[in-house]
Design a protein around this nucleic acid. Structure first.
Lengths: 354, 354
DNA sequence: AGACAGAATGACAACGTTTTCATAACGGCC
DNA sequence: GGCCGTTATGAAAACGTTGTCATTCTGTCT
């Protein structure tokens, strides 16, 4: 079942068989047919291991994400996969959820030819504080692109494809301000992530520009989790002057926020408006359907992958982020604040606080 | 940066360097140290391509799933990943969402040494009608395990790890019957999938065993999609005698069903009870929190992976499915039917029907 | 000291491709 | 028919590792 048997059976040399597979136009039709039938007869399948070894390429792209199963990545992965199929790459997945290796470890996988390049979609702690210089050296030579820049500061110089998180968040906040909200809370994601910090900055930009100025007390850490966002929401709702609107750094936390708001007996959007970020597949069928910032996820995936491939092929792709367009999609989770101030102590939780 | 340079620098042969890496105890401490420092100096990283080629193993497991981003697979993938890390395998992802290759194509990837084995988590059209015999031959030699058996009939004999979908669905239906519901609708998944058919069978088992007998008209195809489930729900709600409870083949469709029920102005569970299947990460924070069947997803992932590895190592793993325990978790989306029949024409849609 | 067992190391083949280079076949032209 | 320019094919090296086998070294025992 190696190329040698096929060659013998077809009565040609192994070079010819190889040529039949890789550049059939260089071989005479008659021999091509002979080889083809020998291949059919033996059921020969080229050994990818040998080929890749010889070529010095794995044909693999390492995709690092927090966890499979987070709806946001659906579109991004679709984009990546589309380009992968088109270009012959396969996708190696590594989840950071359980263990949290450093970026260096991923770069080593490229050095040791376990993959040709890296796409980082999420990485809670991608880099140790001690090895940052080493990392830089390593990463500079390694084809690597960030999708959505959901990463920490130290990686800020690595090429990325993403929306302008800061502007998007600013616009979403402005939208709430225009509706008439003045007390707007922000539920941030995980501490380390640039993406989250950018969104927080956008929120602050908009708040600062508003007549009421900045309300730094209204930024609460939701920790990028459902539980964290619920906790954050409870915090916001128990403030002496509770916000009339909550902007969440992603849809999942918005879902959690809405859940908590309702548990207090408050209504969305009547008592509290909620805005999310991402427009995941469930945003439109939530109750109420969620006003949120939509990112062109598939495009992000595609462009991330193309940029990475370009880097793998040795081109200089620079450091500048590629910015794609976002858009605020208004659904039913937002409304002007009520004339009378919402009384956030009115409702009782319908369930024990976890 | 190959083993040769290291050998030269350390003043030893390449065999010794190789031994230092693979069985350090067979080499004298002094030479080990010399080699180690040579490795450090050169920054040498073993070429995985060459090693795998030599060993004839890819160290890769192909995981086929419908789409990254579907919450259900989160736990399963975590289980798979845990075992993978422990055993040194990496995970190759292939999504069937966009293109739908046949199972044969995946088997070919194993034959051509692109992966060592296959885990099928979902596959809408895994096998062409024409090549089933060929497939069987191929698949019988190929290490392959199904997780959750979300697959078509022709693959029924392939080893799998899953819950007893039929019994689980039957029990969930029985629960609704015990609550007092008589008219219970079922929203099925995609046509081809065994898993879905098993759940439907379980539903029918329970309905047949109940005094009211079977109501085959109440099985509607939800197509495993949000849109499909919404359509199915609308269908059920416009029946002359609309059901007072709806059992959905998965949580996502249950979310969609609840959304449609509410759009009609009906309440869950007051007017209509809804039961899901899977207990995804959003089930508990839906409005109302969803009564659903929970599967031990992480355990499924783990056992699937272990079974596959066993097959890869040449052991006979048989054909019998490994069954893991399910459990109905009751939340707030289910309640006894109201004394008075719900009037399902009362409410008006609050939004255009899509 | 010599011999010998055992440990440590080295030389080299092998894995299955691709690719370069040289050779052989081919076809057209004088 | 011989010559030449193409085109088609074959021989062999190379990719970097592992593993087998033979060899050398080390230390211990007589």
């Amino acid at each position: 079942m190696s190329i040698k048997q096929v060659a013998k059976l077809a009565g040609v040399s192994i070079s010819t068989v190889s040529r039949c597979l890789n550049s059939p136009d260089q071989v005479k039709p008659k021999t091509l047919a002979a080889v083809q039938s020998a291949i059919d007869e033996t059921g020969y399948a080229p050994n990818a291991l040998a080929r890749n070894f010889r070529r010095g390429k794995t044909g693999l792209v390492l995709v690092v994400l927090q966890s499979v199963g987070l709806p946001f990545w659906e579109g991004v992965m679709r984009g990546i996969n589309g380009v992968a199929r088109e270009t012959g790459y396969s996708i190696l997945i590594r989840e950071t959820a359980s263990s949290q290796p450093e970026l260096d470890d991923y770069c080593k996988m490229v050095m040791s030819k376990e993959a040709d390049g890296i796409i980082v979609l999420a990485s809670p702690s991608p880099i140790s504080s001690t090895s940052s210089s080493h990392y830089s050296n390593q990463a500079r030579r390694t084809p690597i692109v960030l999708g959505c820049e959901n990463v920490t500061d130290e990686m800020a110089h690595i090429p990325s494809v993403r929306v302008d998180n800061r502007r998007a968040a600013s616009e979403a906040t402005q939208y709430l301000l225009q509706l008439g909200h003045q007390r707007i809370g922000f539920i941030a994601g995980s501490r380390g992530s640039l993406l989250t910090r950018d969104r927080e900055r956008g929120y602050r930009d908009a708040m600062k520009a508003s007549p009421r100025g900045e309300h730094s007390g209204w930024v609460v850490n939701g920790d990028q989790t459902i539980e964290g966002a619920r906790r954050a929401t409870r915090q916001l709702l128990s403030l002496p002057e509770a916000p009339t609107a909550i902007f969440c750094a992603n849809d999942e936390m918005a879902m959690a926020a809405i859940f908590e708001v309702k548990r207090r007996g408050l209504r969305v959007p009547d008592d509290i408006s909620v805005v999310g970020f991402d427009d995941t597949r469930y945003a439109a069928i939530m109750d109420p359907p969620l006003t949120t910032v939509v990112q062109p996820t598939e495009e992000i995936g595609e462009r991330t992958m193309r940029r990475l491939i370009s880097a793998i092929e040795g081109h200089d792709i620079g450091e500048a982020p590629e910015i794609v367009e976002h858009r605020l999609i208004v659904r039913d989770s937002t409304a002007p604040p009520r004339a009378g101030e919402p009384d956030n102590r009115r409702g009782q939780p319908t369930e024990q606080t976890v």
